[in-house]
Design a protein around this nucleic acid. Sequence first.
DNA 1: TTTATATGTTACAGATCGGTAACATTGAGA
DNA 2: TCTCAATGTTACCGATCTGTAACATATAAA
Lengths: 207, 207
Amino acid sequence: MSSMSIRLAYTAAGAGLPGVKVGPRARIVAVARDLFYRHGIRAVGVDTIAAAAATNKMTLYRHFPSKDLLIAECLREFALECEADWEQISAGHAQDPDGQLRAWVGYVSDLMIKEADRGCALANAAIELPDKDHPARRVIEEFKTAQREQLVIWCRDARYIEPDQLADELFLLLEGARVSIQSVGINGPGARLSRMMQTIIYHNGRL
Amino acid sequence: MSSMSIRLAYTAAGAGLPGVKVGPRARIVAVARDLFYRHGIRAVGVDTIAAAAATNKMTLYRHFPSKDLLIAECLREFALECEADWEQISAGHAQDPDGQLRAWVGYVSDLMIKEADRGCALANAAIELPDKDHPARRVIEEFKTAQREQLVIWCRDARYIEPDQLADELFLLLEGARVSIQSVGINGPGARLSRMMQTIIYHNGRL
DNA sequence: TTTATATGTTACAGATCGGTAACATTGAGA
DNA sequence: TCTCAATGTTACCGATCTGTAACATATAAA
């Protein structure tokens, strides 16, 4: 198997403001999130995580009963941060549903650059963990479902003619862009995501 | 780690017509494709593959220098089969580009049911193998790029106003549907893929 | 029948996997 | 200063991983 030799290029430093003590648990989750995302969940072992978090395997297992539950916790933290972003979009354009939707288009377009070439951590995890009983799957399903519902609400509030279908189209375009970046590369169709979404929104029409 | 115990539920039988001898190499690839697809590439070991193919690890390594190259071969076979399907769509609607495009929509809609809940094997592999030097990545990138170009050709031949953008939209919708099935489930937005594609094609307009 | 090639069998190497036991060390609050 | 909880350290378990060596067997062509 391609060994690739991940190995720690960074220590616990860099996480958190200077002077603020960051406990091992927080470091473990931060490091695990990064390594899981960059290299894949199954490609990263607990030894690597503990070492990269400047702690040890024993402390890791004192905070997380198993690697699977650590995975779930990483995805839960990621999902909470995403939800906070979406709420910020909502709050930043209160009483302006169409502005919310358009702000969201800008937000996800920036994601294409920020995520570079590894797409959505939750979608990737769903592919890497097909076992329906895995504790991470609850997090994934609940979060993705909530995202889609939020999109429907925005489309409906903005009085688009077919809000459910428009929301589904935008949802699938986003998911497709994030996954296709990893197969056709950064200059693939995902690069034109913003224009596509605007076109589709315009074509849908308002009441 | 969630052990899940894959284990062989089937032997070499069932592959090929009766009376036709299927060599170990073909059995290995067939079995590996199935196991990789259902459980994930990293989740399946070579011992499991050899046993499920009713052969042994030594024979496997006589035909494939490494697991990574076996992975690449599995994806190559899959890609060739997909290309054959697309060519059949082309041939079945010669001199009728719009018919080709609409036949393709029907074809990918059926894929949503056939693939059940594991999406595209190539896209999944890209997520599981982020290493850019992995031999499988060439296969993935070339195939996905060729698919997108074929879509552009169909859209252009059918004289749609913006063939490149329409092709990209269809491409991303398909990729998004296949990946979202694995996160939001079979009844998510992917279930309405056909209607969405028809709507978008209609909205694009013809010359 | 002889010969050469493909395949099967067994055992093993070296590494890594997830996970744990036993014990030492640190550090902050009382 | 004492105490106690969190953390660090080391060593280990059994299983699994990719990959190989050596040898036995089958099989088809000559």
